[in-house]
Amino acid sequence: MSRFRTIPPLLVAALTGVVILGSPSQADAGFKLTLSDGTTSTVIEDNKAGDVAGPAGLITFIGKVGIFDFQVTTGSSNAPGTESLAQLTINNLSIATQGFVGTKNLTITLEDTGFKSPDEGLLTSQLSTTMLPSGSSVTYQSYVDGQAGKLLTLNSVGGVSDSQAISAKTNPYTLKSVTSYTIQGLGENTALALQSTGISAVTAPAPAGLVLVASGVPFLGLATWFRRRGNPLPVA
């Protein structure tokens, strides 16, 4: 029989504090976290009931949704964003449940409607997991104003990412992430634990001048190599 330990309160506070120290300082009123097992749904808005974190732009939930015990789940937003970065991060530091037979689903949605910049560039999605029960899977997908990024999937501990060009349809715009677990029960009198992190980020495209400079670096290196050999750089 597999077992897990409940995270001590002091450790919960420490983990939450780490996230707080690294989190953005501002969030829009439209920042919220939704947890659903398909039957029961819980919605936590920034700095409202259910949010045990203090700073704006950070939502931390500790509690139960159906049979799932959320010991620490934290979402952060840097809305309205900076000139170069808009980002949502969801850290499921500890989700546990007692044993069951069959398959259970759990969906965690994090969204903020208050992003203003950058409103075009590269949408990057990242998913990693450090604890996933045997036979289970987790998916992660980012959305910008309803435009979906690539669906990322993991069936075991590991990480995956993807990037694509994106342009928001509105300003302010909505950035959203959806983490979906499909959990295979291992029978009665067992215990299961989940841990994962998802990041959805919009980054501004590099300035044209910077791209030109970067593209010239290999040629500068080639010219140096020819000079050191005492040969002139060939001319096309």
Results as ranks from 00 to 15, higher is better:
residue 140 Y to C: 02
residue 49 A to S: 03
residue 81 G to E: 10
residue 56 A to T: 01
residue 183 I to Y: 01
residue 102 G to T: 13
residue 234 P to R: 07
residue 62 I to G: 00
residue 178 V to F: 06
residue 159 G to L: 06
residue 5 R to A: 09
residue 187 G to H: 12
residue 96 A to W: 11
residue 217 V to W: 07
residue 172 P to D: 07
residue 64 K to E: 14
residue 118 P to E: 11
residue 85 L to C: 06
residue 148 A to Q: 14
residue 108 I to Y: 02
residue 145 D to M: 07
residue 226 F to M: 04
residue 18 V to N: 13
residue 142 S to R: 15
residue 74 T to C: 07
residue 228 R to P: 00
residue 208 A to K: 15
residue 103 T to L: 04
residue 83 E to F: 14
residue 185 G to A: 10
residue 139 T to P: 08
residue 225 W to M: 00
residue 16 T to D: 09
residue 194 L to S: 00
residue 73 T to K: 05
residue 81 G to K: 02
residue 26 Q to F: 01
residue 43 V to L: 02
residue 176 K to C: 00
residue 71 Q to E: 03
residue 43 V to H: 14
residue 199 I to C: 01
residue 4 F to L: 11
residue 47 N to M: 06
residue 119 D to V: 14
residue 170 T to P: 09
residue 175 L to V: 05
residue 123 L to F: 12
residue 172 P to Y: 09
residue 137 S to L: 11
residue 223 A to E: 00
residue 60 T to V: 03
residue 142 S to T: 15
residue 72 V to I: 13
residue 201 A to R: 15
residue 147 Q to K: 15
residue 8 P to K: 06
residue 75 G to V: 08
residue 87 Q to K: 11
residue 206 A to N: 14
residue 46 D to P: 01
residue 159 G to N: 12
residue 229 R to H: 06
residue 203 T to R: 12
residue 96 A to Q: 08
residue 143 Y to F: 15
residue 166 I to P: 11
residue 100 F to P: 08
residue 46 D to Y: 07
residue 73 T to L: 02
residue 160 V to G: 01
residue 56 A to D: 03
residue 98 Q to L: 09
residue 217 V to C: 00
residue 154 L to C: 01
residue 210 L to M: 07
residue 20 I to L: 11
residue 193 A to I: 08
residue 212 L to R: 03
residue 129 T to W: 04
residue 164 Q to K: 15
residue 219 F to T: 02
residue 18 V to E: 01
residue 120 E to R: 14
residue 32 K to I: 07
residue 103 T to R: 03
residue 135 G to A: 08
residue 187 G to Q: 05
residue 88 L to N: 08
residue 42 T to I: 15
residue 222 L to C: 03
residue 53 A to L: 02
residue 4 F to A: 08
residue 44 I to A: 08
residue 16 T to N: 05
residue 9 P to K: 02
residue 126 Q to T: 13
residue 141 Q to Y: 06
residue 198 G to W: 01
residue 135 G to E: 07
residue 137 S to W: 04
residue 18 V to Q: 14
residue 190 T to I: 00
residue 41 S to Y: 14
residue 234 P to F: 05
residue 123 L to M: 13
residue 144 V to G: 01
residue 8 P to C: 05
residue 136 S to H: 00
residue 24 P to T: 04
residue 64 K to L: 13
residue 20 I to E: 11
residue 38 G to R: 15
residue 89 T to F: 08
residue 80 P to N: 04
residue 198 G to D: 02
residue 106 L to T: 00
residue 9 P to Y: 06
residue 27 A to P: 06
residue 222 L to H: 06
residue 123 L to C: 05
residue 20 I to T: 12
residue 56 A to C: 05
residue 103 T to K: 09
residue 194 L to Y: 11
